[in-house]
């Protein structure tokens, strides 16, 4: 597959006369293949937006190599007409109407005015296009931002939190749009906190934490890498059931009268072992990891029972490479 975005060893530290320097990116790597919808995940302050801004030439990197559409990022200008992007919540000049906002961009980009109407229809703003942006809701502004990114029929679409402020129907529409664009061959890099959305729409994913990549690869592979093979089991007598299962060689932990059973070949083995002991299961569910649980574990942001989670202070750190989880099938194949 052809790489549309390649980032290697990207470092960025913000310096300030008045504040302590802040390392936002610390040797970050990312690889996005053509035609994919690629999810880009990370906790607040982990470096997602800094990565996108650096990739798009808004920030100057300290170190690292970046290529976009097979072009060094230093020459981004030569491929910018093929890239549509929104970074964070774009600021619009609010007295202008939605249509005027897009028309100005179309004029600057030498695009026909008819394209403005097309994208307004695509994002569902056609009937509100002649109202000033200041009366738009957050979700409508977000739709306008997506419209501005779509205006130049991009081959690569970079969207930073596109679902921010959207209502459920807007999120659904956005998901459908992503899928349609992917079917048309558009590569989409999607940064979002909506992990269920990412899981539904993305082919592959990169997870960033404190400026470093902590997981990457196809979504299914990332999830499989965190599959412990455990099953949730409910029975009338959990203590006796635990004992029977341990005797059969399974690993068992219990919480709130529920058993978590691992080290077995499958649910049938659990059912058979307990049935032979005269214990009848009332619930038997394989514990499949979802992206949220993987994300929380990898980024260490799972809320503790007794304290709200705090946003981590970025610090420069370079752990040994073998500490990283490499879930990139392509990389493994190459190796």
């Amino acid at each position: 597959m052809t790489a549309v975005i390649e980032i290697s060893g990207l470092c960025k530290t913000f310096h300030s006369l008045w504040r302590e320097e802040k390392t936002a990116l610390d040797g970050f790597d990312m690889y996005v293949e053509k035609g994919q919808v690629h999810g880009f995940l990370g906790p607040n302050g982990s470096g997602k937006t800094t990565t996108l801004r650096t990739l798009l030439g808004l920030l100057r990197p300290d170190e690292g190599v970046m290529r976009i559409l097979d072009t060094p990022s230093a020459d981004f200008g030569s491929v910018a007409h093929r890239v549509g992007a929104i970074v964070e919540s774009p600021a619009f000049f609010t007295p202008f109407t939605g249509r005027k906002t897009l028309q100005l961009l179309a004029t600057a980009g030498g695009l026909p005015r008819g394209r403005v109407d097309e994208v307004l229809t695509t994002v569902g703003l056609r009937d509100r296009a002649d109202e000033p942006v200041k009366v738009y809701s957050l979700g409508m502004r977000q739709r306008l931002a997506v419209a501005s990114a779509l205006l130049k029929r991009p081959e690569l679409l970079i969207l930073d939190e596109p679902a921010n402020g959207l209502d459920p129907s807007g999120i659904h529409a956005m998901r459908t749009l992503m899928s349609e664009l992917a079917e048309q061959g558009v590569t989409v890099l999607l940064s979002s906190h909506l992990l269920s959305e990412i899981e539904q729409v993305c082919d592959s994913v990169t997870i960033i934490d404190r400026g470093r990549r902590v997981a990457h690869g196809p979504v299914s592979v990332v999830l499989a890498g965190h599959d412990t093979g455990e099953h949730l089991v409910r029975v009338a007598d959990p203590e006796q059931a635990a004992q029977v299962l341990r005797t059969a060689g399974a690993t068992v932990r219990s919480a709130d009268g529920v058993l978590f059973v691992g080290g077995v070949s499958g649910p049938a083995a659990i059912s058979e072992t307990l049935g032979r002991a005269g214990l009848w299961v009332t619930e038997l569910t394989p514990l499949t990891p979802d992206l949220e649980s993987v994300f929380l574990d990898l980024t260490g942001t799972r809320p503790a029972a007794d304290a709200p989670p705090q946003i981590a202070v970025p610090t420069r750190r370079r752990p040994p490479a073998d500490n990283l989880i490499n879930l990139d099938v392509r990389s493994e194949e190459r190796a």
């Binding site: 030439g57 200008g77 910018a80 774009p90 600021a91 980009g109």
Partner: peptide, 10 residues
């Protein structure tokens, strides 16, 4: 706002 424009014409 100027950032928006630079995303269009870097």
């Amino acid at each position: 706002g100027i950032t928006n424009l630079l995303l269009w014409r870097p």
